[in-house]
Design a protein around this nucleic acid. Sequence first.
DNA 1: TATCCTTTGACTGTAACGATTTATGATGTT
DNA 2: AACATCATAAATCGTTACAGTCAAAGGATA
Lengths: 332, 332
Amino acid sequence: MTVTIYDVAREANVSMATVSRVVNGNQNVKPATRKKVLEVIERLEYRPNAVARGLASKKTTTVGVIIPDISNNIYAEAARGIEDIATMYRYNIILANSDQNEEKELTLLDTMLGKQVDGIVMMSDAVTPKLHQSIEHSPVPIVLAGSVDESNQFASVNIDYFQASYEAVQLLIENGHKRIAFVSGPLQYTINSKFKLEAYKKAIVDANMELDESLIVSDDDTYDSGIEAWETLSALENPPTAFFAGSDELAIGLIHGAQDSGKKVPNEIEVISFENSKLARMVRPQLTSVVFPLYDIGAVAMRLLTKIMNKEKIDNQSVIIPHRIEKRNSVK
Amino acid sequence: MTVTIYDVAREANVSMATVSRVVNGNQNVKPATRKKVLEVIERLEYRPNAVARGLASKKTTTVGVIIPDISNNIYAEAARGIEDIATMYRYNIILANSDQNEEKELTLLDTMLGKQVDGIVMMSDAVTPKLHQSIEHSPVPIVLAGSVDESNQFASVNIDYFQASYEAVQLLIENGHKRIAFVSGPLQYTINSKFKLEAYKKAIVDANMELDESLIVSDDDTYDSGIEAWETLSALENPPTAFFAGSDELAIGLIHGAQDSGKKVPNEIEVISFENSKLARMVRPQLTSVVFPLYDIGAVAMRLLTKIMNKEKIDNQSVIIPHRIEKRNSVK
DNA sequence: TATCCTTTGACTGTAACGATTTATGATGTT
DNA sequence: AACATCATAAATCGTTACAGTCAAAGGATA
């Protein structure tokens, strides 16, 4: 039925090893033989069986990608970065969604290792002890993308979340705001709690401003949460005049909340976001935002993975890529 | 190094065939033996090698997914639907981006078949003759998701694009508009040219209105194209007062274009979109839109694929799922 | 009841599966 | 004759699948 390397060998009057050699571009085949083999391959429409190849060579040229949710733009962007670099290096990708669920992450890791992937890139907002252990015991390299592991023991690529957040809040402070709110996604996620929030606090304290816990709101990273956050915060006795939002959707929710209740952005209310997805340009006013370069993070993570799989020497396995703030109109 | 089925067999004093049977849940193993084997598996941390299994059984429990671009929300949504159903049926997914490029599509098909996937779900806006042929010759089942193949020869899942578009334009006509514009992505894509545009034309003609070619604009499916489309169309001598937009981004671009030049939506200008992504609720006014249920399309496509892979009888391989129009505020 | 035959249950042994890889052998050059 | 070069055969890789084995349990027959 299916044509195998053996059929090609027979048809071309050579051994299967020779066919293997021409398929894999090995030098030790004389041109005439190579040509003959290639012709037979063409004629028989031979297509090497990657599974057999994987069994024999113990390499599958496939890498696993575990992300929280592909339908979330932020992760999709990263996935695209990962995939682009992967194809560049001739790897294929097994993609799976974890929904930030530890149990799923663990199972996924296990089935991917069972499938003999050559490496894994993973995004996880919370590297739990169990997860940490699984990563540690993995027989193939794993790199974390846009995810912090506090032990700093694994290969990873990130931006400096703390510094970036600090700068964002500072921008608001410089514009003279005295009441600045912090609105983010779940504080179980390390990036939100240990970096965005801590940076916010430090910026406030460094500016000799009062740290008011009631200005700190955390729920989901969604548009609706943004609207809700606006409602609770604007109902405060002494409401904030500026917002540091953990995501674009949150920021847009905040802005629409403000606008719906008659406030002008940025004249009366200023909002700075942390993401800079393509949404940022699709609101009025357009968002000023810390750029969280997910595509690049994915791409760099995948590149790092190829190096490790290749056993190249890595000078620094915790890559920090530069960040910047894109200034548009939600901040004066 | 790695523990194999053979190690387990030796350690448990049974043959590897028996181990294989307990791993695969075969009945012919007496409970005591099963327990013993399971214990050894646990102790040795044995993890079946899916590659070896794939070679022996000729099944990989992985399916290929070829989509234009995962970083585009519409496809990401579909990918999520596909993946959810795939996991439900214990399949993994090899995901790749084609960028609507025929050559890439062909190569991807080839490498996926090389990897011995058990089936493929594909999204392609233009099923070219070559592509058609490749699909036809595929040794494993392929289902098209949200993609039309005009020969109607392959398994596919779609909505009734023509009817949905017709209804959308009709809505605008009912609201009394005499000048209705058509703004879509590339007309090379079958859905745009054969369905959205044709339905638009028919609706206009059926209403005894004049079909004005200058009201038909086609470029990208992006926000910027929407803005551009507004600019060219509003500069017309007799500009349109209503727009049928092929995507949410296009619709938002149109709306922002209108608003930036002082027009009120929906009072002076009405816009109806075709997509209904989560963006639809994130603009003011919120978009009235034909809902293009990509998640469902992906899910149903994957489900259909499992049936075909399972050799179950399929009553209808061209699935049309119901559509509806979500009414919000960009249309009165 | 004793005998023989067939079934069933619970395994075992081993040949695929379709490549890669290594040791070995043949060929041709200098 | 020595030395590269190229080609070959055979051994793996870790499973599954199929054909058997062997003992125990019925069932039928005389």
